[in-house]
């Protein structure tokens, strides 16, 4: 059993190294568009066979496109374009991790948020989302900033993936902490990191798999959707400032948006649910502000309004 597991893990590791080497090579040889053209049969296969993801994409696009900068009704082909955008984003992550993307392609849209966070005596909490590609930004940020990051992930797989990545390219490694539930131990660990000036990163647009109690609803793109309560609980206990981080693909490269969300989140005992609801609604509002500008960069391929 053990040897099987080790063997399997070993294979995975080699697989990742090989995959990263190969995509780095393809990226250099063909460029981003060239890679996407080569990959297009595979993307088409996923588009045609992944009916659940396709339906999620279609219902999302039907909502967002009329409200967005595109300002029209969604067609069947838009969904394919959505899949291509996702493949492109995954490609960029691979290229960034393998060290193929130059840090210069990252531009900072407005540096007030980032400056503000850097000026804090202690650390901060950063809420990211699956809108745009926050992973790319972590690979493109300067060393000092990257070393400050601790990313909260939901699964052991994500932790393992990061370890493999670190072996392949130590320069893009960040700390990860696995959280299934936010308990006292995790909180104390994160508190220590915040006290040392670290930046703790958590996703705000995925609800926890296990703890279904910690879910709150907020209006998003015209209808109520579920959001995680975790980020706001964590922020209130850590007593640190909160920022939102988005990283969008622009014409040439990526654009980083860091905005201050709150100096300090408090959830008074008598009104914890209402208070966290207010924060979630504000978050959903910012998410909406950005998603209508970048409708094809939304990488949640499940029924978000379920």
């Amino acid at each position: 059993m053990t040897s099987d597991a080790t063997h399997w893990a070993g294979l995975r590791e080699r697989g990742l190294g090989w995959g990263l080497n190969f995509s780095a090579y393809a990226y250099r040889l063909l460029g981003r568009t060239g890679c996407l053209i080569v990959l297009s049969p595979i993307i088409l296969y996923f588009f045609l066979s992944g009916s659940e993801q396709r339906r999620a994409s279609q219902s999302y696009l039907a909502r967002v496109l009329p409200m967005s900068v595109v300002h029209r009704r969604a067609s069947f082909l838009d969904s394919y374009r959505h899949f291509i955008a996702f493949a492109g984003s995954a490609l960029d992550s691979f290229a960034a991790w393998s060290g193929r993307l130059s840090p210069e392609i990252l531009t900072i849209a407005d540096d007030t948020g980032l400056k503000d966070a850097r000026g804090q005596a202690r650390g901060a909490l950063f809420i990211v989302s699956h809108l745009g590609n926050a992973d790319v930004s972590r690979a493109l940020l300067d060393d000092a900033t990257r070393k400050r990051l601790t990313i909260l992930v939901h699964t052991k797989h994500a932790v393992r993936f990061n370890e493999m990545l670190e072996q392949y390219n130590p320069e893009v490694a960040v700390n990860t902490v696995q959280v299934t539930d936010i308990g006292p131990e995790t909180t104390i660990n994160l508190q220590e990191r915040i006290d040392c000036g670290e930046w703790v990163v958590i996703a705000g647009d995925r609800t926890p798999l296990e703890n279904t109690e910690r879910v709150i609803s907020a209006p998003f793109l015209g209808e109520t959707a579920s959001f995680a309560q975790g980020p706001y609980i964590l922020a209130s206990v850590l007593k640190c400032p909160v920022y939102l981080l988005f990283c969008f693909r622009a014409k040439h490269g990526y654009e980083l948006h860091v905005e201050k969300f709150s100096d300090r989140i408090t959830l008074p005992r008598q009104s914890r649910d209402q208070a966290s609801q207010t924060y979630a609604a504000r978050y959903a509002n910012r998410l909406e502000h950005h998603v209508i500008k970048h409708p094809f960069q939304w990488y949640n391929f499940f029924d978000f309004w379920a």
Binding site: I182, G183, P184, E185, S236, L267
Partner: peptide, 25 residues
Amino acid sequence: IDALELGVAIRKKFGIKIESVNDDI
């Protein structure tokens, strides 16, 4: 949420480590 706050407060005040994830907590 109070449990989290209290855990952090105890950690700070008494300087004890509550490291491992277990039901004893």
